[in-house]
């Protein structure tokens, strides 16, 4: 049985002012025990997709099931099976970590005695035992994310939804959370996470779906996605705009990014001399050239036409450079 099966779901928000299609057509499936990454920039529709799958938003069209249970009609049953740590789910800052775990355990149906045991287990699991009796408002961002993750694990869910779990964290805290997510996967938990970090998707996800403007534009393992664009990526850099402009006319199938042109070809290293000769014959001066295997970054550029640069600059990155 599939952990998650999503078929052509759409989400349209209708207000007096306008109608917004936040998710236009998203389909994917997730096998049990894998980490599935939804990769895309802000506003791509990742969080809306997660909200629909976690029963917090209705699905406008299409269908989705969690462990064979229909999300639209059996939302209470779905909630029993899933753990959720959303980008904007809150943590009560006035309570201590221990109180939050204990309260959540009680709400999930544990007796007082079992809640105490489970609370201590989870505090240990997310490394917050020493801070257990401190109010959450004194926790660092990384500690709060770990607490958030721990709270979503109280009832030992089979499927865990994490919406941008490491956004805003420093590299050290991010690494700690990655290790924890991998450990959960190794223990059989299915994880669906959204991210706008290529590195995170590459490091964590067994399979990745790239979402852009409400559509899944590519899906597969990281290696499959990289292989899908084939060959090597040759990058030409230029010091002068005129050279860049002329080179673009010569390398007609290249993609421009800032002062660079990228071209994807088979056996890139052997093709470089020929390209350089063509450019040189037209008086184009190349400042540097390199050939590399494609990265997830290249895949993203290939399928969306722009580069994903991370949360803070994704909007600027969305200046599509056409071939």
């Amino acid at each position: 049985m599939l952990a998650v099966d999503v078929k052509n779901i759409k989400k349209t928000f209708i207000s007096k002012q306008d109608t917004v299609e936040a998710v236009k057509d998203v389909s994917f499936h997730v096998k049990q025990g894998e980490i599935f990454g939804l990769l895309g920039p802000n506003g791509a529709g990742k969080s809306t997709t997660i909200l629909m799958l976690t029963t917090l938003l209705s699905i406008t069209e299409g269908s989705a099931s969690i462990l064979g249970i229909d999300v639209a009609t059996k939302d209470k049953e779905v909630r029993e099976k899933i753990g959720v740590a959303l980008q904007d789910t809150g943590i009560d800052n006035l309570l201590t970590g221990h109180e939050l775990f204990f309260t959540t355990c009680r709400l999930w149906g544990y007796s007082k005695k079992d809640s105490e045991v489970r609370t201590n287990e989870l505090l240990e699991l997310v490394g917050l035992t020493e801070a257990a009796d401190r109010r959450v408002k004194t926790y660092s961002g990384g500690m709060k994310r770990r607490l958030d993750l721990g709270l979503s694990l109280v009832h030992s869910p089979e499927i865990l939804f994490l919406d941008e779990p490491t956004t805003g964290l420093d590299p050290g805290s991010r690494r700690v959370l990655w290790d924890e997510i991998k450990r959960l996967r190794n223990n059989g938990v299915t994880v669906i996470l959204t991210t706008q970090y290529l590195e995170e998707a590459d490091e964590l996800a067994d399979r990745i779906a790239i979402i852009d403007e409400g559509l899944v534009v590519a899906e597969g393992t990281s290696d499959e996605l990289k292989a899908s664009i084939g060959g090597d990526v040759i990058t030409f850099a230029f010091n002068h705009n005129d050279d860049l402009k002329n080179a673009k006319n010569i390398l007609t199938n290249s993609v421009q990014e800032k002062n660079e042109l990228r071209i994807t070809v088979e056996d890139g290293a052997s093709r470089i001399p020929g390209y350089l000769k063509d450019l040189s014959n037209q008086g184009v001066e190349v400042s540097s050239v390199s050939a590399n295997k494609p990265t997830l970054d290249d895949v993203f550029l290939e399928v969306t036409g722009y580069r994903l640069e991370g949360s803070e600059s994704s909007q600027q990155a969305k200046q599509k450079s056409k071939r």
């Binding site: 917090l56 209470k76 909630r79 959720v84 959303l86 789910t89 809150g90 943590i91 800052n93 709270l151």
Partner: peptide, 13 residues
């Protein structure tokens, strides 16, 4: 405002 409401909404309570 803090999102705690949403957390409880995602639980079967």
């Amino acid at each position: 405002e803090s999102g705690v409401f949403k957390r409880y909404q995602s639980m079967p309570i």
